[in-house]
Design a protein around this nucleic acid. Structure first.
Lengths: 145, 145
DNA sequence: ACACTATTAATAACAATTATAATCTAGGCC
DNA sequence: GGCCTAGATTATAATTGTTATTAATAGTGT
């Protein structure tokens, strides 16, 4: 499953004439394997041991390229730094206000809201995003103590 | 209407033991009057003529205090800088990808999504936000030319 | 092997925001 | 009304996430 995703992604890169460098491969693989939604710095730190000389700019460059090819999604929330998500199926996010954890939330896409918004605003709506905020189980338990 | 909002807000400040300084008053008034959703820098620039010596830190401090007291809302999107919204009634936002304009979008709150999210995630959901992205009428027309 | 181009690493630049420290002032109290 | 003090402001430095620059490096096609 992961191998399949990785191979598909690599095919996309090849077709676009983007070279598969070791660093790029590692960033891509890390994102596909990650259960979490890492920041650029998370990725940088995680690959540090494998690529001691890698620059943080390389991580950003590769994330930008992967984003431009539609292989990853950039999530921009309040907490300063962007997070990256290799799950390209439409879904929403649930975010813990305490620890910052982000969990995917699959729910039928709210297309009717988009059409209503078009009517009332005159905009041409392309997409929407939604985040639900609260406290995760772990943090709720920690607070009780 | 605006006066009423302003007075209510000032009461809240007084009750919380927060001093009503001229700068703070001006920031608050600007936000309540604003049709737009200004950034900290917008506010800073707008009040520059009235308070030539005002520091940008003052704007940030006051925005933080107003936010902590629940008088304004901070909107954090991808585009680097936060925007501030004095409309505290629940509503969503429609954002133009071309020019960055933000328009309020009133729609019945999606409470059922919150309860579903609680069930599937185990989170305790407090609130949610949604933004719809697209192209506004002005920018659509500009593109045709 | 050669030339060409993409990529990298290192570093500097940048912009938004926050921290620090010295000075000032709003608002309660006499 | 004038004094006092905690809170506010100013100016500046520091921090953080990200992007730009540039020279060195490494694939790719011929």
């Amino acid at each position: 499953m992961l191998d399949h995703q990785l191979n598909t992604a690599i095919d996309t890169l090849k077709k676009s004439g983007v070279r598969i460098t070791p660093q790029r491969h590692a960033v891509l693989e890390y994102l596909l394997t990650a259960e979490t939604h890492p920041t650029a710095d998370d990725i940088y730190k995680a690959l540090e041991s494998k690529f001691p000389n890698m620059s943080v700019a390389t991580v950003y460059n590769n994330l930008r390229i992967l984003r431009e090819l539609g292989l990853v999604r950039e999530l921009t929330y309040g907490d300063s730094s962007s997070r990256f998500d290799s799950n390209m199926v439409d879904h929403y996010h649930i975010i813990c206000d305490e620890c910052g954890k982000i969990v995917d939330f699959h729910y039928p896409t709210l297309d009717e809201i988009e059409s209503l918004a078009e009517k009332v605003s005159g905009f041409n709506i392309n997409y929407h995003r939604m985040e639900l905020y609260g406290t995760c189980e772990e943090c709720s338990q920690a607070k009780v103590q």
